[in-house]
């Protein structure tokens, strides 16, 4: 028998009896960050490949989610900070060894780029502003106004200011350059969600370099599922269904490798793996994440490609839910794993 007890009054509820510093805010951000990274990745990729009209949803429609998701994710991150008034300190330094510093700077670059991306395509996605209640129109008039004459494009609005219009035209003309900048940034953003956790040696469940690629693939997979759900074009749906199927298979391989690595590792990582192999997280992880979040949608997508008719919302929603639950479980379980006591 071995019993270790802290006998003095260390009763910090965030640390004892189990470390509980990060709550729902972090997994929510990891999910939204991964989703946005994937959406921007596909948008940039198909722009570079000159298929922006062929895969309209991926390039023009789905990226609208990205800045909204990043903004919500950033709000979640701010809520997590215990000293939020000092958050500007993130931008007074670049710390190469700290993934969080990398992530903060990446978000600083991605956020305006994703807004710019939406701004140059939104007139093609929503060409007509219909009858809008006056108060809402007043707010909208800060940025957009109805056009006087119809110039044959079918778009009945434009940005309010001349400089904004010329800026938009300039960015639109240089959208391929922007795509080249956005592509690596999106990958860094996606990897960052995993590397953030894997940098912590003290939490054995997280301390594996596989977490970066695993979270990246999972994020891109949730993005592919969203595009598949949003699109009305059968060809685009088939393409993203196929991409998603491949990503799910890669993700399953990574998960198997993750546990192989843990079980071949030091005692603390074997203990971490045991949380998922008979321990507390076995049922939610294998049931909700692996079976319902990966295997079932993979089978549904495969059946769809074989010609069966499956409502696309089912696999897409399962993948998104599975991705979110995966991050909640990883953050929660990782904080239980430790070296001492």
């Amino acid at each position: 028998m071995r019993e270790e007890i802290i006998t003095s009054g260390r009763m910090n509820p965030l640390i004892d009896p189990v470390l509980n510093v990060w709550h729902w805010e972090i997994p929510i951000y990891l999910f939204l960050g991964g989703l946005s990274a994937g959406l921007l990745f596909f948008a940039a990729l198909y722009t570079i490949m000159d298929k922006e009209d062929k895969y309209k949803t991926a390039v023009k429609v789905a990226p609208i989610i990205a800045p909204i998701a990043i903004a919500l994710g950033l709000i979640a991150l701010m809520l997590d900070l215990k000293h939020p008034l000092y958050s500007w300190q993130l931008y007074t330094t670049i710390r190469m060894g700290s993934p969080m510093s990398w992530g903060a700077w990446t978000l600083m670059a991605v956020m305006p780029l994703s807004v710019a991306w939406v701004a140059i395509y939104i007139d093609q996605v929503f060409p007509q502003i219909g009858r809008t209640p006056k108060p809402i129109m007043k707010v909208m008039n800060l940025v957009v106004r109805l056009k006087d004459t119809d110039d044959g494009t079918g778009i009945n609005w434009e940005y309010s200011y001349k400089w904004l219009r010329s800026l938009k035209n300039w960015v639109y003309a240089n959208r391929v350059t922007m795509a080249w900048i956005l592509l690596p940034l999106a990958i860094i953003l996606g990897v960052y969600t995993g590397i953030l956790l894997s940098a912590f040696n003290a939490r054995p469940l997280w301390n594996t370099s596989l977490l970066g690629p695993l979270f990246l693939v999972s994020g891109i997979s949730t993005a592919a599922a969203s595009i598949m759900w949003l699109t009305n074009d059968q060809e685009e749906r088939t393409l993203f269904s196929r991409i998603d199927l491949i990503l799910i298979i890669v993700e399953l391989f990574f998960i198997v490798h993750l546990f192989m690595g843990f079980l071949a590792g030091p005692a603390v990582q074997i203990e971490a793996a045991e949380l998922f192999l008979g321990g507390h997280f076995t049922a939610p992880f294998w049931g909700l994440v692996v079976v319902l979040g990966l295997i079932v949608p993979a089978i549904l997508e495969a059946l769809e490609l074989k010609g069966f008719h499956i409502p696309v919302a089912v696999p897409a929603a399962l993948i998104l839910l599975g991705g979110a639950i995966f991050r909640f479980i990883m953050v929660e379980a990782g904080q239980i794993t430790r070296w001492l006591y």
Partner: peptide
């Protein structure tokens, strides 16, 4: 900033 990275 109270992010908790060092605690983790």
């Amino acid at each position: 900033i109270g992010c908790g990275a060092c605690i983790q």
